[in-house]
């Protein structure tokens, strides 16, 4: 195992361009789990990003919030300005525990690409964009288009996440719901983020598909004002958007049923087409 302790983001990008298989590490809360037995990871070369102060900023611009790649959950929870994007601190407060929130980064959550990620749905529901950087340039990818399949990202091997840009829009409806196996410090079994703004409805599901996913069929159903009179009335749209599985934490049947009920109860007060 060899470690590069980058001292500037440009240096980090150079290292990543030269050896694209290095493992970038920010808060380490995904990478270090069960570390003594993580033999494959221990064979790799590592690139430490944690000291790059130029990545730890949070900027509020007139119509966008920029989260540097080292911005943590705790940074957002503490920062009163996020009242403008309440689902971000709400989601952050459900991630692991305090000790995870102080170290875990939003960018790490995106790059780790877990279907159960909680930061990702909150960002996705606000139409966040991922700023990617490499020695050959910068580009921006909508988070909703960032995942192609289980742990498959729209990022080239030489690219690093530099920041996350979240549009600041007024919303008249926002909700984040997480169902875990216990009240705190739990991995999501069923999760959703829902928001409405001038840009329309956004519905994002986590732990319901191989990736966190924007549910466009459900969004169209709600947008179109089609009547829904029970949770079951959402099932065909849910099945078009996601495909939950049985795993060690829950069952497909549970996930589907609970997702339908939560979404129904969430939208009931907000949509006149729901009864």
């Amino acid at each position: 195992m060899r470690v590069d302790l980058a001292t500037s983001f440009e240096e980090a990008l150079r290292i990543k361009a030269e050896r694209s298989d290095v493992v970038p590490v920010a808060g380490g809360t995904d990478l270090l789990v069960h570390w003594p037995d993580a033999h494959a990871l221990q064979e790799r070369d590592w690139l430490d990003l944690s000291a790059l102060t130029e990545l730890s900023h949070i900027h509020f611009e007139p119509d966008t919030v920029v989260l540097g790649a080292l911005a943590t959950y705790w940074d957002v929870i503490q920062d009163q300005r996020f009242r403008a994007l309440p689902l971000l601190p709400a989601a952050a407060a459900t991630v692991g525990s305090l000790q995870i929130q102080t170290r875990g980064t939003w960018a790490g959550n995106i790059a780790n690409a877990s279907p159960a990620a909680d930061g990702v749905p909150a960002l996705m529901v606000y139409d966040a964009e991922v700023q990617l950087a490499s020695t050959s340039g910068r580009r921006s990818v909508p988070l909703a288009d960032f995942y192609h399949g289980y742990k498959q990202l729209e990022a080239r091997p030489e690219e690093l996440i530099e920041s996350i840009r979240v549009p600041l829009r007024p919303h008249d409806f926002e909700n984040f719901t997480k169902v875990g196996s216990r009240a705190a410090q739990a991995i999501t079994k069923v999760g959703m983020a829902v928001a409405h703004s001038a840009a329309g409805w956004r519905i994002v599901a986590n732990s319901m598909a191989p990736t966190v996913r924007r549910c466009r069929t459900l969004e169209r159903l709600v947008e179109s004002g089609g009547t829904v009179d029970s949770p079951d009335g959402l099932l065909s749209a849910i099945r078009a958007d996601v495909n939950p599985i049985d795993d060690i934490r829950s069952t497909a049947a549970y996930r589907e049923r609970v997702f339908s009920r939560l979404l129904y109860q969430t939208l009931l007060p907000a949509c006149s087409s729901f009864s």
Binding site: H34, S97, R182, A183, A184, Q185, I187
Partner: peptide
């Protein structure tokens, strides 16, 4: 056989 997947009560539970 991990504490993530075998959940015991936390103070919040």
């Amino acid at each position: 056989n991990q504490l993530t997947n075998y959940v015991i009560p936390t103070s919040a539970d």
